[in-house]
Design a protein around this nucleic acid. Sequence first.
DNA 1: ACCTTTAGGACAGTCTGTGTCCTAAAGCCG
DNA 2: CGGCTTTAGGACACAGACTGTCCTAAAGGT
Lengths: 317, 317
Amino acid sequence: MPARMLRLLSLLQGRREWSGAELAERLGVTDRTVRRDIDRLRELGYPVDGTTGTSGGYRLVSGRDLPPLLLDDDEAVAVVVGLRTAAGSVAGIEETSVRAMAKLEQVLPARLRQQVAALTDSTSSVVSWPLGPQVDAGTLAVLATACRDHELVTFDHLGRDGSTTARRVEPHGLVTMHNHWYLVAYDTARADWRTFRLDRLAAPTPTRLRFTPRELPAADAAQYLAATIRAAPYRHTAMVLVRAAAGEVLAGLRGPLPGAVTPVDADTCSVGLGSDSLDLVAQSVARLAALGFGLTVEASEEVLDRLRSAGRRLADL
Amino acid sequence: MPARMLRLLSLLQGRREWSGAELAERLGVTDRTVRRDIDRLRELGYPVDGTTGTSGGYRLVSGRDLPPLLLDDDEAVAVVVGLRTAAGSVAGIEETSVRAMAKLEQVLPARLRQQVAALTDSTSSVVSWPLGPQVDAGTLAVLATACRDHELVTFDHLGRDGSTTARRVEPHGLVTMHNHWYLVAYDTARADWRTFRLDRLAAPTPTRLRFTPRELPAADAAQYLAATIRAAPYRHTAMVLVRAAAGEVLAGLRGPLPGAVTPVDADTCSVGLGSDSLDLVAQSVARLAALGFGLTVEASEEVLDRLRSAGRRLADL
DNA sequence: ACCTTTAGGACAGTCTGTGTCCTAAAGCCG
DNA sequence: CGGCTTTAGGACACAGACTGTCCTAAAGGT
């Protein structure tokens, strides 16, 4: 009988309106039983609207809380891809969407996992183009699950000098900052807290060993990360003064910048840019120049050189 | 009893591993009943791994098909936001994710709907910065549902001349093209097929009237749209020849372009840009220039003027 | 008025779900 | 190896629930 209940929910989620007779036929029971089943759903807190009369019927409406979602294959793939995209590009829900992904990932049939991989691989570089480096959806999911379940994980970590070291850590939390994902964890071998950038981390595997969480020397993972990162600034920065109102600049840009636009006065604003990529900083300044406003730039000679040569090429068109 | 079943599923989805005794306590039944419940889950096709011995327990693993998802509030919000993001930015799953959104939207509690609106409104312009105009998630959901259920919809349509007209159409399908969402529908008043850009469309409301779908004069909605749109090209275009391999250019760009990069030979590639925004086209060419490679540009005098003045400004830094 | 639809009470028979036993078997640990 | 803990599942009895078949009521559409 619970099986029939789920099928009923599935039917109600798949189409707007059903008549009692239709449902009865689909479920292989009497219409009386259908009515009883619908009563049961209502008692569970999932309200079903019933309208009488010709062309009446039952429809599932929004209620106090969300009913169990019965997704078909394609929809499940869409949800995972969506969570993956949102986790990387919408501020404020990274942690939640990673949690949801962990939940889904745990039960996602293998064939769908392949579809997800195929989709994110093939399309991410073409259409949704994150500013930061790509993080494998599987990596995110494995680490999120490990954090939730307080499970030790091992992985290979690629250091700044190019050497890889095998790590075994107690994962604490995942944080995004500056378009990168970080894992905050306690490294048992080094007996200290560490942060790892997810794109420098390979083959994360959950051991099945549980640990009791330690207390982080900070309010939460995000603050800990902020404190440790502060010492490591960007490799390239630029400060651009644009002779136009901040609003005009923002409107004209039509896309994100690796930095922030702050108004100076009514027709001047400053843009502070920072990134580890010379290309990205140079492109950002070039975009500001392409807006058609006057500007002055403070930056390293390396960045300025690149901009000047680009300028000559454009001036000669 | 179906209620207990759902709670059991919820518990199993919320944590990796549970012992029979824990589950029994949570559910308020004997451990024998828990075993029976788990048997029932397995019979329904949702495999539960049981490991014996100390530190053994039950865990939900991936099986043939996806079990009903029991999401908490935050997770549900994340899923909706994710679907919304993916629908607009990942090629190839628009239609599916819109379908999934319709399913969710139908049962989403009101308070969560507010959260979703708040999140998409506040963050979309800051972080995920779509190339096309913003489309309201509610609009998408209403129309998707109406398409699915063959339900007449009414809405206000903002014409090119700025006048709004009330429409009443039989919705056929939703399509994305060139970073815009379109509704393909049969306009009953005008007795012909029409396409509507979703960002020029307000207050869509489903009537509860059903209609029997007509045959579209094309293979599918996407092809119909392509045929009708073909006559309306971009306002600004540019063709850029870059003296570098396509791979190098793609790697250096670190972000999406309103166009495509196609290799010409081993160390030359061409970039075809197109958009209705002069700013966007100019910025895109400027970004290509900032990569540090030689380039030649074909474009309208308006675009070239803008680029030359930007070039002078950069050359003088 | 008439039909169609949801809504729900009454009743009897069946059946199934539950708790309390029991034993088996697999893994962990000292 | 010999305990201990865990999942696994059979047997049995009882209560409770579920189903189908009846019935009437009420609401909406034509």
